[in-house]
Structure formats: structure tokens, C-alpha cells
């Protein structure tokens, strides 16, 4: 790494920690954030000392000879909001599958922070380490109520015995209520999730993701099927998460990408990554990427 990058990384990290500390002190009795300076050593706690939340290195995945990912390398910094675009079949969903443990790659490495090897863990372990994923198709528990959907996503012991004995505390209630408000489903808590509209389901899924309090959010086409207004509100929500969370957004909707890139903390230049045939075709500011000849060629054809 160059000194420049190192410096930038450490700046980002500081900003991230500061923001996290701020958000934590708001809800707790304080003192819990005092340890942010220590080197994280617990094996299941993500270590972001080096400023990166996700390192994907030289990943190759092939299905029956077809290379879905071809030596893909991608690094996401702490607190970053990264947009990933690419034509159909570029490998976006497969990339998410690899990161979340659904697909094991043929070669390469993937680390969460600098200490958690994603390729050694199962989906549920990766999720509880702090990687949240939203599917392309909204996936909620159709026959449970909206409230129960969020309750299941609530951060807590995920083991069988714990959930047999579990009872909601008033703090849990408050947290779910806040989330309902945030995702604009305040009055729909007792509705069956299957009855929600498509856009509402998308929101509910985002809400469930946030209930897990993930450090990294992977969002696969989060605004597909949303109205313009809903899309705008989603962009706002994501921008408000920026900094305290790291986000990777895969999207086709260039208008939405534009909103994400140009909104929020303007002082930072947001990077957009273009995937093509399983590897990174271009990476940089949105305007640069859009001007890139090869990108134009891929998108528009010769």
C-alpha cells in the first residue's frame, strides 16, 4: 500500500469510529465505547484496524466451465458506500454469494476486516459476524407478521436453546418500534408480511438487515420494483447509514446510483465499480467511469 492510501484509510477509520461512538452513546449508558482504541482480538469480532472492511482477492468461480467470476479483486473501506454496476451476467450476484458464504470459490481469498476468513465460514456464521445481505428478490417471512419478521432479525443469541427461552425486553420492543418507523411500516406491525406491497417488502427486508446491526451491508438491487418516491427515500436511508456502516450496492438503476454518489458526505469522492465478465472493468468516480470507453462499449455494444 502506498502511504497515501494508508493515510486515507486511517482517516476513514477515525471517522467511522467517531461516528460509531456517537451513535452508541446515544442509546447506552456510556463507557462501552471506551475500548475503541484497543486492537480487536476476539476471534469473532471484525478487526478493521487497517481501514478495510472487505478484501476480495483474486476470486475465481466457475460453473461447468463458465467463469462467473474471473480473478475478481475488490476492496471496501470502513464506512464506505460502494456502488457496483455491470451488465447481466457480470457476476454481481455470484460475488455476493461468495462473500456471504453461499458459494465457495475455486480459488482466491476473501476476508472480512483483516482477521475473518470468509471462505472458512458458513452463511449463518458470516451473517452473525456482521455481514448483512439483501436478496435481489425481496425475501421476507411471508406468513409471519411484520413485527415478527423484525423480531427474528433482532441481534441476539441465535442458538436453539436461547430462542426457546427468549422473551422480548422493553428495549427490544423500542428497537423494533424505531425500525418500523424508519422503514415506514409503523402502522403495519401486525400485518402479515406476505400482504405487503413489493416496495414495502423491500423496505421490510432492509429493516430486517438493519436489525442485525451489520457492519457491512450487501444490497442486491434494493430499489427494484419501487416507486420513484420510495426509491428516493431508500437513497436517503442509505446515505444516512454511510459512515457508520459500510455498504455495497449492486444496482442497474443509474438514477439511483447518481443519487447515492452525489448525495450525502460530498467531501469524499465515492467510487463506482464496473463489473464485466466476472472481473473489474473499471473503478473510479461515476463521471470517469461513465466516460470510460470500454465501459461504454460493454453497455452499449459496438
Amino acid at each position: 500500500m502506498t502511504p497515501d492510501l494508508l493515510e486515507e484509510g486511517s482517516k476513514r477509520r477515525e471517522a467511522y469510529l467517531a461516528k460509531q461512538a456517537a451513535s452508541q452513546t446515544a442509546g447506552t449508558s456510556g463507557g462501552q465505547s471506551a475500548s475503541y482504541g484497543r486492537v480487536v482480538s476476539a476471534a469473532d469480532e471484525v478487526d478493521v484496524v487497517h481501514g478495510g472492511i472487505l478484501y476480495v482477492d483474486d476470486i475465481t468461480v466457475s460453473f461447468d466451465g463458465f467463469r462467473a467470476l474471473n480473478k475478481l479483486t475488490l476492496n471496501i473501506a470502513v464506512g464506505e458506500l460502494r456502488c457496483i454496476i455491470g451488465p447481466n451476467g457480470a457476476g454481481k450476484t455470484t460475488m455476493m454469494d461468495v462473500i456471504t458464504g453461499k458459494t465457495k470459490p475455486d480459488s482466491g481469498r476473501a476476508f472480512f476486516g483483516s482477521n475473518i476468513d470468509l471462505l472458512r465460514l458458513r452463511e449463518s456464521e458470516i451473517a452473525s459476524r456482521g455481514v448483512g445481505r439483501k436478496f435481489q428478490k425481496p425475501t421476507v417471512f411471508e406468513q409471519l407478521s411484520v413485527f415478527e419478521n423484525l423480531e427474528l432479525a433482532l441481534k441476539m443469541d441465535r442458538r436453539v436453546r436461547a430462542s426457546l427461552m427468549h422473551k422480548l425486553t422493553s428495549a427490544d420492543f423500542d428497537r423494533i418500534a424505531e425500525m418500523l418507523k424508519l422503514i415506514h411500516l409503523r402502522d403495519s406491525g401486525s400485518r402479515t408480511a406476505g400482504d405487503l406491497s413489493h416496495g414495502q417488502k423491500q423496505w421490510l427486508e432492509i429493516g430486517m438487515l438493519l436489525m442485525q446491526d451489520p457492519k457491512l451491508l450487501l444490497l442486491d438491487e434494493p430499489v427494484a420494483g419501487m416507486t420513484d418516491e420510495e426509491t428516493e427515500r431508500t437513497a436517503e436511508l442509505f446515505l444516512s447509514l454511510e459512515g457508520s456502516h459500510s455498504l455495497v450496492v449492486v444496482e442497474h438503476d443509474m438514477k439511483f446510483i447518481g443519487e447515492l454518489v452525489n448525495g450525502g458526505q460530498r467531501e469524499k469522492k465515492k467510487i463506482v465499480t464496473v463489473l464485466h465478465e466476472g472481473s473489474v472493468l473499471a473503478e473510479g468516480a461515476l463521471a470517469d467511469v461513465q466516460a470510460n470507453e470500454r465501459v461504454v462499449e460493454v453497455y452499449l455494444g459496438r
Partner: peptide, 8 residues
């Protein structure tokens, strides 16, 4: 088996 996304 057909591997890949379609199979899932």
C-alpha cells in the same frame, strides 16, 4: 448436476 445459480 447443473451447477450454478440456476440449479439453486
Amino acid at each position: 448436476a447443473l451447477k450454478g445459480r440456476s440449479a439453486e
